[in-house]
Design a protein around this nucleic acid. Sequence first.
DNA 1: CGTGACTGGGGTAATTTGGGGA
DNA 2: TTTGTCCAAATTACCCCAGTCA
Lengths: 65, 65
Amino acid sequence: MTMTTQDRHETEKLLTPAEVAALFRVDPKTVTRWAKAGKLTSIRTLGGHRRYRESEVRDLLGGGH
Amino acid sequence: MTMTTQDRHETEKLLTPAEVAALFRVDPKTVTRWAKAGKLTSIRTLGGHRRYRESEVRDLLGGGH
DNA sequence: CGTGACTGGGGTAATTTGGGGA
DNA sequence: TTTGTCCAAATTACCCCAGTCA
């Protein structure tokens, strides 16, 4: 199952701050700081809340060993 | 439904250094040394703090007799 | 249009990291 | 050789409340 080049972001699954925090075993506020520091890509809702790319989070979790 | 030795690490529950240290009754610094020596798998937060796999810790605690 | 849960922002404790030495 | 402790700096956790989400 080869992807042409990359998935279109329209179909990218997004995670809430609480979900990302649970995966890293940190506080949701810590995930917010990562986004502010540019360490993690964040998508903004129209109200200002952040959402994160599942693929990026999974990559960061597995790439650290 | 055969599964490899362990589940996907993305859903693995993680422990903080203090929690692992309490389980082994050692100083958190000692847990850090185990991780550096490769005796214990460590996942890193984006800030550099370590997290440890609960299943691995539980295995080491119970398998040591 | 309410209700309950979650999030953002700020500020302050607590934990973790890393090196070095006992 | 393994472990515990001292130090400074960095990272993370918990407190508040107003606004957003579903």
